[in-house]
Structures are given as C-alpha cells and as structure tokens.
C-alpha cells in the first residue's frame, strides 16, 4: 500500500471577478513510503495548494487523500490537525520560523502539538544540521542558510512519515541551496520519511531520481503552465510514485 494515495482531488477558489477557478485537479497520484519525489511546478501551477491539501491545511472540494491508510478528506479539521502534527513535516520556502522563539524552541514547537516535546531529539536534529552551537539564538540572528536548516530540523522533529517541501531552496544561493537539498534528502532518509518536494528550479529537480511535472498531475495547471518549457533532466520514474490512470491527459 502506498504511503500517500490521491484520487480525483479537486480544489477551487473564488477569483476576484467572482468566477470559480479550479486550482487543483489531480485525478491520481501516489507516493511510496521513504520515497523522494520532486515535482516541477511553476508559479501559479497550484503547487502550494496541492501541498496544503495533502497536509490537511486546506480541505478539498472533492476527491480522496489517503495518508498511511487514513482518508484525510473524511476527517474533521481537528483530526486533520492531529494527523499533520503526528505524521507530516512541512518545509516552507520562507521557512516560517517563529521569531519570538529560539532555534531550539522552534524545533520543539514542531513536536509540541504532536508526539510531545523531546529536547534530546530536538538537540540531536539541530546537531545533525550543524546548528548545535546556535540552539539559543533567535532566527533573526541566523543567516538565511542557517534558518533553512532550522526549518529542516523542525520538519523532522515529529518523526514524520511524509515531509512536504515547498520551494525549500527558493531563498538560498546556489551553494546553500545545494547543501540544503542534500541535507533535506539525507535527513529524510535517515529518519525514514518520504519526501515530496516542489520546485521550479531545474538544478534542484535534477538531483532527484524521480521527477514529475506538476502540470502532468494537476489538470488545472495544464492550461497555465507550459510544462514543455521545463527541461527534463531525467526520465520520470513511474514506479512506486506514479500518476494513476488518467493522470495525464
């Protein structure tokens, strides 16, 4: 059984002109446990909405999201919060660290609403990302690359089965981006977490064995994103992570 199974997922928003606009329309998508997949998505392709739907931050209009055997769309909001707190780690493009809290506290927050704060594990994660001497610094006292590493540690703090990463290297220079990506992938591997990363950066995408074009998955994005513009750096694997039937029109 796949870790993540999505079928017939749809999400619309009301546009400023009052029209209902389809943002996500994913007929089928699957991700296996411990698998690392990169989704290529341009701005406006609905990638953040897609990740937010998987994370349970947004509720779909229709469709099914099954995470580790649990049907997310059938859960109430509080239960989705619980699943997110226990099973999902989320890395944001702007890291979304809380500036009133120290580095260590930011990571502990990642545990607080889930399995509970484990200071030793939080410290070990921060040591793993090279911030053992920055535990009591505030995010503003860190470089951008260091903030990104805090975000990685926080995403792994609740020992998630799935890590969602939304343009995690979008605010980093090339050297830091490469280092950050290596860190995210290694940390997910070491912690047994699957990784679903979305990015528009070809250098980032090129480092994944499994790449998928979001425009191929999300029919709502196909009219807006010229998927052909993305240079395929590797042949997408259609094994454990794959588009289901009807996934590509």
């Amino acid at each position: 059984m796949a870790l993540l199974e999505i079928n017939g997922l749809k999400k619309t928003f009301i546009a400023p002109d009052g029209a209902r606009q389809m943002v996500v329309d994913v007929p089928s998508f699957q991700l296996e446990a411990r698998q690392q997949v990169a989704l290529a998505g341009q701005s406006g392709s609905g990638k953040t909405t897609f990740l937010n739907l998987i994370a349970g931050i947004l509720a779909p209009d229709s469709g099914s999201i099954r995470l580790d055997g649990r049907e997310m769309s059938a859960l109430g909001e509080a239960e989705r919060d619980r699943v997110r707190a226990l099973s999902i780690g989320y890395i944001f493009q702007t890291f979304n660290l809380l500036h009133g809290f120290t580095v260590l506290e930011n990571v502990l927050l990642g545990m607080t609403f889930g399995p509970g704060a484990d200071r030793a594990f939080a410290e070990s994660l921060l040591k793993r990302v090279g911030l053992e001497d920055r535990l009591h610094h505030r995010p503003r006292q860190l470089s951008t690359g260091q903030q990104q590493r805090v975000a990685v540690a926080r995403a792994l703090a609740n020992r998630p089965k799935l890590v969602l990463a939304d343009e995690p290297t979008g605010n980093l220079d090339f050297r830091n981006a490469t280092e950050a990506l290596r860190l995210v992938r290694e940390a997910c591997s070491e912690n047994g977490a699957a990784l679903l990363l979305v990015s528009h950066d070809r250098e980032v995408l090129g480092q994944f064995e499994t790449q998928l074009d979001l425009a191929q998955i999300n029919r709502a994005a196909q009219t807006e994103v010229a998927s052909a513009a993305l240079r395929p750096t590797a042949e997408p694997q259609r094994g454990s992570a794959h588009l289901g039937t009807g996934g590509v029109s």
């Binding site: 994370a55 909001e77 919060d81 619980r82 979304n96 927050l109 607080t112």
Partner: peptide, 9 residues
C-alpha cells in the same frame, strides 16, 4: 505557522 505545525483552533 502554529496551525501548520498541528496546533488546533
């Protein structure tokens, strides 16, 4: 952010 980390309403 707190909600995204799993905090309930």
């Amino acid at each position: 952010i707190l909600r995204a980390l799993g905090a309930r309403r």
